[in-house]
């Protein structure tokens, strides 16, 4: 009997790994398909979709699609624009939303719960319903630049950044996390004479790595994948981000290889950012049950 138990255990472990491999394959295969297809000419790419060859770098393999993609559209500019807008928004959002959440979690003020409820309630409003009013608002805001005072923010970076610096989901994530932190930490810091901003910056932020990582990844993805808003507010190519740029590749005769090459290129920053914060992201999910 004693020998059976380890065998069963091994079988269970093997089955578990087999299942994990299968689930992992479901997620990894589209990425493999994208990268492999980006190396094939269109004719071969389309023919290979009917077989396992779609996932194998076989046949006429080259980097031609990448060169063609850079020729068709200013890929570097689009990636730069997206990273700039996303980077500033993520950093700004982490700062502003965590501060707001800190206030909701630790400060006492009249109407706190109502205000928080109202903020969270905005989660149910689809962005599409407020896009046009927002467009009219940003189009009538003042701006100071080389031409002096002008009106309207269209065709700029700030129009893609400012409206998204604070959002309900990020505030909610921080509030949930902060509320689970031991109150004694804050009380001890306050007794030691720390001001509220010191409590926030010196006590809370250092122990909140996982939620910062989670919020950063979710915000990064949301901003990097923005399409409708930048489409509405960037009429000049100079400010367009990657998702609007993707449309450059859909012509009457779509060059699928170039589409895949472009997608592979613009996926790299997302993967790099996720891998960079992966450990903290998983820790956050494990400790709070928050799902992306």
């Amino acid at each position: 009997m004693a020998a059976v138990a380890p065998t069963n255990q091994r079988l269970k472990t093997s089955l578990r790994y087999l299942l994990l491999v299968l689930v992992g394959a479901v997620f990894i295969f589209p990425i493999i398909f994208m990268v492999v297809s980006s190396l094939k000419p269109d004719g071969q790419l389309l023919r290979d979709t009917a077989s396992i060859r779609a996932f194998l770098p076989v046949g006429d393999i080259s980097l031609d699609n990448y060169f063609a993609a850079f020729k068709r559209a200013p890929v570097g500019l689009f990636v730069f624009n997206s990273l700039l807008v996303t980077g500033i928004t993520v950093i700004g959002s982490l700062f502003l939303c965590s501060m707001a959440a800190f206030a909701f979690a630790f400060l006492e003020f009249k109407g706190k719960e109502i205000v928080l409820s109202l903020i969270i309630a905005t989660l149910i409003i689809p962005f599409e319903t407020i896009a046009v009013p927002m467009l009219m608002v940003v189009n009538s805001l003042p701006s100071i630049g080389p031409d002096g005072l002008t009106w309207g923010w269209l065709n700029s970076y700030q129009v893609q950044i400012v409206p998204f610096l604070a959002d309900a989901l990020t505030i909610f994530l921080f509030v949930q996390y902060f509320r689970d932190l031991p109150k004694e930490l804050i009380e001890a810091a306050r007794l030691d004479g720390a001001r509220w901003f010191q409590v926030y910056s010196l006590v809370i932020v250092p122990i909140s790595g996982p939620v910062f990582a989670t919020a950063a990844i979710l915000k990064f993805l949301a901003m990097y994948n923005q399409y409708l808003w930048p489409l509405m507010v960037t009429q000049s190519e100079q400010f367009r981000p990657v998702m609007v740029g993707l449309q450059y590749f859909f012509q009457l005769n779509t060059a699928w290889g170039e589409v895949m090459a472009y997608l592979s290129l613009i996926t790299l920053p997302v993967l790099a950012f996720y891998l960079f914060l992966q450990r903290a992201f998983i820790a956050s999910i494990a400790s709070t049950g928050i799902k992306g």
Binding site: V132, L135, M136, G152, L231, Q235, V244, G245
Partner: peptide, 21 residues
């Protein structure tokens, strides 16, 4: 000249009409 990708063009024009530019 200002160019737009075809799939995004109509939406861009409608948005511009709303914004008055």
């Amino acid at each position: 000249l200002e160019e737009f990708p075809q799939a995004a063009y109509n939406d861009s024009v409608v948005a511009a009409a709303v914004a008055g530019n």
